[in-house]
Amino acid sequence: MHRDHPTDEFGAPRATAPTELSGGRRRALRIGLGGPVGSGKTATVAALCRALRAELSLAVVTNDIYTTEDAEFLLRHAVLPPERITAVETGCCPHTAIRDDISANLEAVEELEASVGPLDLVLLESGGDNLTATFSRGLVDAQIFVIDVAGGDKIPRKGGPGVSGSDLLVVNKTDLAPLVGADLAVMARDAKAQRGELPTLFCSLAEPDGVAPIAGWVREQLARWRAH
C-alpha cells in the first residue's frame, strides 16, 4: 500500500486519480490482481468475493484476452450479482489496458460506482499475461500478483515487476508442491530476496478457507485506506 508515501520506489509521484468522489465521499479502494495464465487469479477473485461480500460492497472488473470468459466464470459461480461485474475488452493486450492506457478500466470502475455504488472495494483482474504485467498506480491503489507452485519454483527467483514490486505476492496451489517437486522454502527465500519487506503469502485456494490470509490482507488495506 503506497498511499502512505508521496512517491514510489523510483521517486515518481504516486497515483494521480482523485481519491474522492464528487460529494466528498472517499471512493472505493481499488485492488488489482495480475499474474500468469492459470495461476488462479480468477479463483482468487471469486474466493475473495465469497469471503468479503457479506461485509463489504464489492464490484469486479475483468480484463480478459477473450472479452468475457473470466467475467462469465464469476457470473456462473454467482460470486456477485451480475450488475457488479464488468468485462473490459483489451484488444489482445491486457497489460496495455491495466498499465499504459487505463482509460477503459477507469470508465468501468466509475460506471460501477455510479450504478451499484457506493462501493467499498473494486477488484480489477488482469487477463493472464506474462511476468512483466503490472497495474498502473493511476488505476489501482494496491496490487496482488498471483503465481503458483506448478509454474515452477524458480519464478520468484526470476523476479520481474510483478514478483518484485507487487504489494502482495500470492503463491497459490501449495497443495501441489509435492506433486510437482517445488520447494516452498526456496520460493520463500527467493521471494524475500526480490521483495524485501513486501509481504508474500503461500496458500491453497483449493482448501476450505484457503483464501483467508489474502482476505485478511485486503481488510488491512481497506482499514488503512479508510483511515488515511
Binding site: 484488444g91 489496458a97 492506457d101 482509460s103 477503459a104
Partner: peptide
C-alpha cells in the same frame, strides 16, 4: 497511438 485515450482496444 500511445496517447491514453482507449483506442488500443478498438479495431475499427
Amino acid at each position: 497511438g500511445r496517447f491514453p485515450a482507449g483506442g488500443h482496444a478498438h479495431s475499427g
